[in-house]
């Protein structure tokens, strides 16, 4: 049985970041895009907590708590914008919402 090292956490973190990034770039449903952003944020959290344990410094965990808090607020604002957008455009597809251009 191998102990779980910091490296494992980092691999997990990278995997989550990759999944989240690909989700943001490829999925068309804005709800999915928001969820993918959550994945990216969680990848960062894992990174922070992992290094906090690794360096025996609690600062990283404090940051993680902050990030979770901000993520919640961001999700709330993002979903609010999404609902308002849906009321006007009757769609949640990101590629159909492209009026903000020249």
């Amino acid at each position: 049985m191998h102990p779980i090292t910091t490296l494992h956490y980092l691999i997990l973190s990278v995997a989550l970041l990759a999944i989240g990034t690909i989700g943001v770039l490829t999925r068309r449903n804005i709800v999915i895009i928001l969820m993918s952003i959550e994945l990216i944020l969680n990848a960062v959290n894992i990174n922070l907590v992992a290094f906090s344990q690794h360096f025996n410094n609690v600062n990283g965990q404090v940051f993680a708590i902050f990030v979770i808090t901000v993520a919640v607020a961001e999700a709330a604002v993002g979903l609010g914008i999404l609902i308002s957008l849906f009321r006007n455009k009757e769609t949640v597809q990101a590629d159909e919402i492209e009026i903000l251009k020249w």
């Binding site: 990034t21 943001v24 770039l25 490829t26 068309r28 895009i33 990101a94 590629d95 919402i97 492209e98 009026i99 903000l100 251009k101 020249w102």
Partner: peptide, 21 residues
């Protein structure tokens, strides 16, 4: 001169995000 420039402004959020990445 603005015509070539505005090709980049697609209005698509995901295109911008790809550019970030």
């Amino acid at each position: 001169s603005s015509y070539p420039v505005r090709i980049f402004q697609t209005g698509s959020v995901q295109a911008y995000a790809l550019a970030f990445v």
